[in-house]
Amino acid sequence: MIMIGANGVTDSVMAELDSTLTHHELLKIKIASNDRIERAATVEHIVQQTGALLVQTIGKTCVIYRQNEETELPLPKK
C-alpha cells in the first residue's frame, strides 16, 4: 500500500508508484485528502501518468492495476 499525504503527488511518489507497479502489478493507494473532487483528480492523474487501470475506489482508497509485460499468466484480451 502507498499513502499519499498532504503534499499530494510529487515526482518521488510517482517514481515509487511506477516502481511498485512494475514489481507487483496490483497496488492499493490511500489518499489523505478530505475533498472528494481532489481525490478523484489525484486518482485520475495517477492513472494517466502510470498507464494503469483503475480497479476500484472506495472512500479514500483506490486500487490500480498495470500488467507486467513479463508476467507468466497473461490476462485474456477483450
Rank of each mutant, 00 (worst) to 15 (best):
I29F: 02
A32L: 00
H24F: 08
Q49P: 01
E25T: 09
R39L: 13
N34C: 07
T20I: 10
V9W: 03
N7C: 08
L21V: 00
L75V: 15
V43G: 00
T71S: 12
R66V: 01
G8N: 06
I58W: 11
V47F: 03
A6G: 00
Q56H: 13
V13Q: 01
Q67M: 12
D18P: 01
H24Q: 11
A6H: 08
T57I: 13
L21P: 01
Q49H: 04
V63Y: 09
G51E: 07
T10W: 11
S12Y: 15
P74E: 11
C62S: 04
D11V: 11
C62P: 00
H45F: 08
E69K: 13
L54C: 08
G8E: 03
E44R: 15
K77E: 10
V9S: 05
A40K: 13
E44S: 15
D35P: 02
I29A: 03
N34I: 05
Q67C: 06
Y65W: 12
M1I: 06
L17V: 01
V43Y: 01
T57H: 07
I31H: 12
H45V: 04
T71Q: 12
N68V: 01
T10A: 06
Y65K: 06
G51D: 03
T10Y: 05
K78Q: 11
S19M: 13
A32S: 11
V47W: 04
A41D: 04
M3L: 11
L17C: 05
R39Q: 07
